[in-house]
Design a protein around this nucleic acid. Structure first.
Lengths: 237, 237
DNA sequence: ACCTGAACACCGTTCAAGT
DNA sequence: ACCTGAACACCGTTCAAGT
């Protein structure tokens, strides 16, 4: 894999850093800025040092190790997401859809942070707030608290997992992404029908892997199934 | 983050490698073996060299670069999955469930490969076979070819994304994983109810992030929604 | 033809040194 | 107290050298 870190792209630190300008907040902001311009290699101490105009190891003054940094940046991602979130409505399913698409947008914009965020618990304030808002949607639907908790976890993981895939694909080295996309237009369309009868019968209908409507349909399907299940449970009472 | 590569765990190459013993198949097998014992750092040239008892760069004789290696190993993962797959039945939904759980198992067993597999197209024979079998399930359900293609993509991406999250969590440094799991038992259970009324109302019901039934429920929900949609389309005809 | 050794530009992390 | 420089064990990749 070619190294995703391009030396030309990182601005050289021409000015020395004034004392006491570094802080957790400043570093998190810088991390989100690099992760918007660079790909999966954005979250290194060197990339951050260059962005801040500081020595890479200066960051250790403010975060115990990489994991503490990384969880703080993940929570910064959730802060950015909450700031962009449309206000909640009286429609719990619409609010769930808004939550999901906003998360997807923010993940694709910051792929390096997204890869980590998907499988981690930041256990910091903006994650708490995000969980609160998601659970609020399920509770407003009228389901039991046990169901709200269960479907919160499953819905969130599906959204996190799908968004992380789309983020990773968007951040892939352009040459590799092109080759992957082309495979579905070329290799998959010239397979022998005798060996792959079902595949070849439908290849022309397979949506592109980078089609953003795939994610939206996945979210709609989850909501439909959860609604159908909890409606059936209510009738059974 | 502590380095996931442990020197003590990798066997030293005491014997020199006989000429001509290296091949694509041997290297892929070794890669799947290391990725079963080591975590996210399993797929490096050094780890592979140690496993093979060969110089790390000897691999370049057999694969052009890391990406070609990686796509071949991803396809090796699909080969392993297909070998473990239970034979298909007359129940398309049950077959889809089997496909999903087998993929989840293989991903969790090889987390380093899984992280890459989720967002890539190997465009090699075992991936073709996997796509063929998945599309076969949807076509047997009686839906249109266009729907089979659409739902293949969305169902597969949900399974891939969720499995990749569970794989990453399972491969996390044990200390970090413990801290993440504990957050849901401690931090999340001591939040102020005034600020987080919905969260605190249901915290005791939230399933653990490593509960394997979360994934199975997600798969069931997807199948239920797809079945409901296509049944409704049939009635409309 | 197939494998090794040395080199290069990257990683995270530690620690002594500067201010 | 806050930041820098040098060092260490890792990365992927290239290329000259060995057999």
């Amino acid at each position: 894999m070619p190294n995703p870190t391009s030396r030309a792209a990182s601005q050289p630190a021409l000015t020395r850093l004034p004392r006491g300008t570094l802080s957790q907040a400043v570093i998190i902001e810088a991390a989100l800025a690099v992760s918007e311009r660079k790909g999966l290699g954005a979250l290194s101490f060197q990339a951050l040092g260059a962005e801040l105009g500081a020595h890479p190891t200066a960051i250790y003054r403010h975060f115990r190790d990489k994991d503490e940094l990384v969880l703080a940046v993940v929570d910064g991602l959730y802060a950015e997401m909450l700031a962009e979130l449309a206000p909640s409505s009286e429609d719990w399913a619409a609010d769930l859809r808004t939550l999901a698409t906003t998360m997807h947008d923010v993940f694709v914009r910051h792929p390096a942070v997204a890869q980590i965020a998907a499988a981690r618990t930041s256990r910091r304030e903006h994650e708490f707030e995000l969980v609160e808002q998601t659970i609020s949607c399920f509770r407003r639907s009228g389901m039991t608290d046990a169901d709200a908790a269960r479907y919160y976890r499953i819905f969130s993981d599906v959204v996190l997992g799908y968004s992380a895939i789309d983020a990773a694909l968007a951040a892939l080295d352009p040459k590799l992404r092109e080759a992957d996309l082309r495979a579905w237009q070329v290799e998959y369309r010239t397979l022998p029908p005798a060996e792959f009868p079902n595949l070849t019968a439908v290849t022309s209908h397979i949506p592109a892997i980078d089609d953003p409507s795939n994610f939206r349909t996945a979210v709609d399907l989850m909501i439909e199934a959860i609604r159908a299940r909890t409606a059936a449970a209510e009738v059974a009472d």
